[in-house]
Write a protein that binds this DNA or RNA. Structure first.
Length: 214
DNA sequence: CACCAGGCAAGTA
DNA sequence: TACTTGCATGGT
C-alpha cells in the first residue's frame, strides 16, 4: 500500500505540480475559510472572506462581538449563510472564552486534544477539524473528503462502507507524518477529483489512469 | 435546464 | 443505529 500511495502522489504531482494550499494569509483566515467552504465552491468563499476583510472584522474579537444576524448577511456569498454564521460564532466563542482569543494557545494543544476539542464544537465535523489542524495549525493529519472516497473507490482501493477514520488511517499508516506531504496530497486529490472524477467522470486524460499498478 | 461545490447536524423510524 | 433532509449561493 505504501508504494501505491506514493505512486498515486507522484502521478498527481507530476501532472498538476505543487498546489500550495491553503490560499489564505494567516491561520485564523484559514480556519474561517474551512467553515465557509463546507459543501461550497472556494470562489464563493473568497467573496465572503473579502466582505469580512473590507469591514475589518476578520479577527476573533470582532467576530465574537458581531451579532450573528449581521455576520450571516456579510458571509452570504458563501451560501448556507445562516448555519455558517452560527458555526463561526460557535468556533470563535470557544477560542475566545476558553483561550482568551489566543489562537496560537489553542493550536499548541497536542494533536489528539486539538482534534477532539474541535469536534466538540457544533458545526465542526471531521473534515473541517482536520483541515484546520493541517492547514491552520500545521500539524500532520490527513484530510479525507468526498473526492478521496470517490477516487479510491473508482480504483478499487476501498470497500463502500469504509468510515472517515478508517480511510484516514489507511493514508496515515502508510505515509510519513509530514505536514507538507499531507498538505499537497489532499490538495492534489481535490484537483484531480474536480477535473476528472466527478459523478460523470472524464477519465481519458486523468493522471491516475492505470493506477494502481505497483 | 440540471448539476455541482474543499459538510454537518438534526430529524425520523 | 441507519437513512434522510435542510441548509443556499453562484458557476458551468
Amino acid at each position: 500500500m505504501k508504494d501505491k500511495l506514493i505512486d498515486m502522489y507522484k502521478r498527481m504531482f507530476s501532472f498538476f505540480g505543487p498546489q500550495r494550499w491553503w490560499p489564505a494569509e494567516d491561520p485564523f483566515e484559514i480556519m474561517v475559510g474551512a467553515v465557509l467552504t463546507q459543501n461550497t465552491n472556494w470562489k464563493n468563499v473568497e467573496k465572503a472572506i473579502r466582505n469580512l476583510k473590507e469591514r475589518g472584522i476578520l479577527d476573533i474579537k470582532n467576530l465574537y462581538h458581531i451579532p450573528e444576524k449581521e455576520l450571516s448577511y456579510i458571509i452570504r456569498p458563501a451560501g448556507y449563510y445562516n448555519i455558517k454564521a452560527r458555526r463561526l460564532k460557535a468556533l470563535v466563542s470557544h477560542i475566545y472564552e476558553i483561550y482568551g482569543g489566543d489562537i496560537s494557545r489553542f493550536f499548541s494543544l497536542d494533536l489528539p486534544s486539538l482534534r477532539s476539542e474541535l469536534l466538540s464544537i457544533k458545526g465542526i465535523g471531521p473534515e473541517t477539524a482536520d483541515s484546520i489542524i493541517l492547514y491552520a495549525a500545521q500539524k500532520p493529519i490527513f484530510v479525507v473528503d468526498a473526492y478521496t472516497y470517490r477516487i479510491m473507490k473508482r480504483h478499487g482501493m476501498i470497500y463502500d462502507e469504509i468510515s472517515y477514520d478508517e480511510l484516514q488511517e489507511m493514508f496515515m499508516k502508510n505515509l510519513p507524518a509530514d505536514v507538507k506531504l499531507f498538505n499537497e496530497f489532499h490538495a492534489l486529490i481535490v484537483e484531480t477529483g474536480k477535473q476528472f472524477c466527478k459523478k460523470r467522470p472524464v477519465c481519458e486524460k486523468c493522471p491516475l489512469n492505470g493506477w494502481p499498478k505497483a
